[in-house]
């Protein structure tokens, strides 16, 4: 169609492609609205509040938070907030311990499950159960297990042949250990599940060919399985890093972030200042800062992964 004859053309019924685009738009609309509703508007609200000293106890509704305008003071306070940085450091520590341990345990278990053996299906079904237990329930479960008169000490006592009454959850170091054990218990199955899917995808003929050429089990893993598993391993690790960073439910129920602040991770810290201190202007600033850092980290990680894949 040229411009000249356009005005003369009769109204054209929508072509199939246009028709499809219209339906596509309508179908995606609810999801788009929900994303806008949860992402764009709240983020703008959060940005606004973060520039004020507003609190729900301030006596005015949030739109009038400008009355408490304090510019970027909240953001400059972040740098001096020792408790925040300690919580971030603790979150990093938990991640640095839990994710590698979960990865290695999951991978080792997955390796045992590559070929068939009697009882495999049942064992598999049981091994993936922990990740389906409601995390909060897992929290109550481990809270019971780690009581000083509880079964963990009971079991240790039986093994060592003497009474053990370790106060797991009220010792700053042991509380952290207990929280990590719970996380490892619950999420090793996820690593196992994903890595096993990856291992099963490694062509068995290539593994056999390598065996026949004299490669040892470790050499086969390193030279044949690993190169193919790289992407899957990155996905598994990424998922756990992201989820572990959010660690809250199990930990909060087990220790409430304590004793003191010994197990206070970033989510616990934000929860505490949100519900106890109620300094929402400041909390908004923390939350936004974390969102920005996470976004930058995600973009950086994706670029690196893209380069690694190429």
């Amino acid at each position: 169609m040229t411009l000249a004859d356009a005005p003369l053309a009769p109204p054209v019924p929508p072509t199939p492609a246009e028709d499809g685009a219209r339906l596509g738009f309508r179908l995606t609309l609810p999801a788009q609205v929900l994303v806008l509703f949860i992402a764009v508007f709240p983020l703008l609200m959060q940005l606004y509040i973060s520039l004020t000293d507003w609190s729900p106890l301030a006596g005015v509704a949030w739109p009038r938070a400008w009355e408490f305008w304090n510019g970027f003071a909240n953001y400059s306070d972040l740098a001096q907030d020792g408790r925040l940085w300690a919580a971030l450091g603790r979150t990093a520590l938990v991640m640095a311990v839990c994710v590698p341990v979960e990865f290695l345990l999951g991978l080792s278990l997955a390796m045992l499950f590559v070929d068939e053996f009697p009882g495999k299906r049942v064992a598999y079904s049981i091994l993936i159960m922990p990740m389906m237990v409601v995390p909060a329930v897992a929290g109550y479960m481990f809270f019971m297990l780690f009581q000083s008169g509880g079964p963990v000490n009971g079991l240790l006592g039986t093994l060592l042949g003497r009474d053990i009454a370790v106060a797991w959850l009220s010792d700053p170091t042991l509380a952290l250990v207990a929280v990590m054990i719970a996380d490892i218990w619950q999420w090793t199955p996820l690593m196992f599940l994903i890595l096993l899917a990856g291992l099963v995808g490694v062509p068995q003929d290539q593994m056999r060919a390598a065996t026949l050429l004299g490669a040892s089990a470790w050499q086969r893993f390193r030279t044949i399985a690993l190169p193919r598993m790289k992407t899957i391993m990155i996905i598994a690790l990424a998922i756990r890093v992201i989820e572990n960073f959010k660690i809250f439910d199990t930990l909060y129920i087990m220790t409430g972030g304590g004793p003191g602040v010994a197990t206070e991770t970033i989510s616990v810290y934000i929860y505490e200042v949100t519900t106890q201190d109620l300094i929402w202007g400041y909390v908004a600033a923390i939350a936004l800062a974390i969102l920005v850092i996470l976004s930058v980290a995600a973009v950086w990680a994706m670029k690196r992964m893209g380069r690694a894949a190429a």
Partner: peptide
């Protein structure tokens, strides 16, 4: 809509990001 008609190209990434963020950070 996305799979068949290519609508909402922004959604995959937007929704991944939604999952990336700790819920705690948008709760206020």
């Amino acid at each position: 809509g996305l799979s068949r008609y290519g609508s909402g190209q922004n959604l995959p990434l937007a929704l991944l990001q939604l999952r990336l963020f700790p819920p705690m950070a948008v709760m206020i």
